[in-house]
Simulated assay, not measured.
Amino acid sequence: MFSLRYLGFALLALRASAGPIAKRASAYFNPADNGGSMLTNAGTLGEPLNVIISGHSSPDVLSYDGIVNYARAIGFSTECLGIHLGGPQSADLGDGNGWVNQTAELREDYGHPDVGTCMESAIGGNHFRVFKQDGGDANSGALFLAASQEEPSTEHHTISPDGYDVGRDTLVSGALGTTSYGGVTYSTTAENVAGLLQAGTNGINHDIAIDGIVSVLTVTIQ
């Protein structure tokens, strides 16, 4: 006669043979936990990585093409005529890849994704650099962004007063809720996280103080 006890043993064996249940990917890893930094390398000093697009976001957002399309949905685009102004910055996200140059730099497009960034290059505005945490030591897939508000070309694109916090807040304000571009619709939520960055000016480029807050965005394709 088939016993309930035998059935229980059979189910336990089946579960064991199936292996461990896969865990959901981490939203991000703190770079400092593995020798990295929440500041880019901009020369002697660095710029704060003040926005993170969570690894819990839709995977298609976390690729190069994905972040470019998402950027266009929230008011940014690629650089004017594909010409990069200034040298690229690098970041060590504690994922084992060491210091890696930015994946992309996106600029405010003033409502014109094709040519609007030429205006940003001339009169200033918001922009952000993108770095991906995908090394074998901390593979969250998250995108770390260094957002800032910059002055016009006549001021050599220096960062505006309070420009790091302003750049972060402006980006997040335009991203929250539902946005779309190129036939793709996004839903974005945000959480402010303290403790990843140190408030103040220590190590910060241009000696501009920051409040130490990082905004973590979770972007879902609808």
Rank of each mutant, 00 (worst) to 15 (best):
R15C: 12
G111H: 04
E155P: 15
T220F: 02
V166L: 07
G116C: 05
T103F: 03
Y28I: 12
P59L: 02
M38H: 12
K132V: 13
G43C: 05
I208E: 07
G86D: 07
G98P: 00
A199E: 09
N97A: 08
Q102T: 15
E155K: 10
V68L: 05
T154H: 14
A138C: 03
S63A: 02
S121V: 14
T189K: 05
N30R: 13
Y110F: 13
L7D: 14
Y70I: 02
T40D: 04
I83Y: 06
E150H: 15
G46N: 04
S77W: 06
S37L: 07
S215L: 02
L217E: 04
I123R: 05
T189H: 03
R24M: 11
G212R: 00
I67E: 12
L197D: 07
T40Q: 01
S3H: 14
S37T: 08
E105Q: 09
V214Y: 00
I83V: 10
V216A: 03
L81Q: 10
G36R: 03
A91C: 01
D109G: 02
K132S: 10
A91H: 00
L12E: 13
S121W: 13
D162L: 11
A146N: 09
D114I: 05
A209K: 05
I53L: 12
I83S: 04
R107E: 15
G66R: 06
S180W: 06
G98T: 00
V115H: 11
D134S: 12
R15W: 15
N34L: 02
P161T: 10
N97C: 08
R5Q: 09
P161A: 15
I83R: 12
E151A: 13
Q149R: 07
S63P: 08
R15A: 09
N34D: 01
L11K: 08
A27F: 14
S90M: 01
C80H: 11
